[in-house]
Computed example of a mutant assay.
Amino acid sequence: MNFNHLEYVVKTAEYGSISKASGKLYLSQPYLSGVIKGLEEELGYKIFHRSKSGIEVTELGEEFIKSAKIILLELKKIRELNYADEKPLSISCYYATYIMEMFLKFKNSTKLKLPDKIREMGNREVLESVLAGESTMGIVFFAQEKKGKYYKLAENMGLQMEGLFQPMPMFAMMSENHKLAKTEEIEIKELGGYPYVSYDDTSSKMFLKLLGIEENEQLLEVSDRGSFYDAVMSGEYLTIMAYKNIPQKSGVKLIPIRDKKLYLTSCYVISKNYQLTKREKEFLEFMTTDRRKTDGNL
């Protein structure tokens, strides 16, 4: 048994599939399956029940995974002892171009070379990541109408949520080659009549329901920003995004929504009673200061 094997089991349980976990971990499926089988033989009990429909964590497996998570968190603390007050950033974030840009700028602007980490995922997954201790800080974005719901969810999970940027207006976004690109305004119901691209996480699906276009037969759901922007730039798909000051020659067209004013709210999330490190405070200040200077897309 080694620490990597503990992580493999935890991730397999999270993804609910050896096949999916192997892809996310960049391991071959036979290798991951063999690791889990060898670990179960070493322990003398099954961690997972296997069936044609997938895997299910056993009762003893649940206890094993709880202990494994504690061990991995303690290991993380041990590895970070050398950094004293300048601990690496460990951030989970909703899919946001701006945050990634600021993250890279911040790293390049500091003299310290630390193994910072940022991962993109859905809002619910961000909260779960902070709750599990996999990230010390999360960043979420959601429609202003859902603010109360997200604050309540964070409170129920024992998390603290704080506002980040000023609410941003949202627009229909598409390629300059899209059929609607020359339209001055658009109504939400029109969005349901065209191919629409969305992320496939729970919060994005909630947003589609808020718009009333969740039943769009031409909906394309993706799980990463690369695929998202490829779909938009193809000229076939449109979406909704908070976006200001479009870069010249960006190839993107933003169209105001006529019948409803949509705003995007942003927050950072930490565990209750958690004290932000000096580096985390500096990163938040870096982002908000830069945001006041130039507004870009999220």
Rank of each mutant, 00 (worst) to 15 (best):
M174R: 00
G34P: 03
S67M: 14
I213R: 02
E59D: 13
R279Y: 04
M121E: 10
S204A: 15
G192Q: 08
Y194V: 15
I188N: 05
G212P: 09
A132H: 08
E101V: 07
Q160M: 11
K69P: 06
E62L: 12
I186N: 07
C267M: 01
N123P: 00
K37I: 03
T265F: 02
F228K: 13
S109A: 13
G61F: 03
E285C: 03
D290T: 04
K37W: 05
T12G: 11
E120P: 00
I70G: 02
K244S: 15
L72E: 09
D290W: 07
K105T: 05
F3Q: 12
G158F: 01
R119L: 09
I18L: 14
Y31C: 05
L60K: 15
I91R: 04
S22I: 10
A132K: 12
G38I: 00
A231L: 09
L60A: 12
G23H: 14
L81M: 11
G61V: 11
S33E: 05
G212F: 06
L75G: 10
E80W: 03
S175Q: 00
L75E: 15
S223Y: 11
S67V: 10
E221L: 15
S51W: 07
Y45P: 07
Y274N: 04
H5Y: 12
K107M: 13
T288I: 06
F165C: 06
D200W: 03
L39N: 02
E187T: 12
F141M: 12
A231F: 12
S204I: 08
N108G: 05
N2E: 15
L153K: 06
F171I: 01
K261Q: 13
K146L: 13
T289H: 04
K244V: 09
G133I: 03
S22Q: 08
E128N: 09
M102R: 09
K146Q: 13
T136G: 11
I213T: 04
G44S: 08
G23F: 13
F228T: 13
L104S: 13
M206V: 08
K209F: 01
F3P: 00
F103C: 05
K260G: 03
Q248K: 15
T277F: 01
L153E: 12
R292K: 15
S22E: 09
S175M: 01
S90N: 14
D116V: 02
N123C: 13
M1C: 02
E214G: 04
L276W: 00
L208D: 09
Q218T: 14
P88R: 04
K179D: 10
V9R: 03
G138P: 03
K52R: 14
Y8F: 14
M287A: 01
E280M: 06
Y150E: 05
K87W: 06
E7H: 10
F48K: 07
E74Y: 09
Y268W: 05
F171V: 01
Y31A: 09
K278D: 06
S129D: 11
K281S: 05
V252H: 04
K66A: 10
G16F: 13
P256A: 09
R124V: 14
E59S: 14
V57S: 08
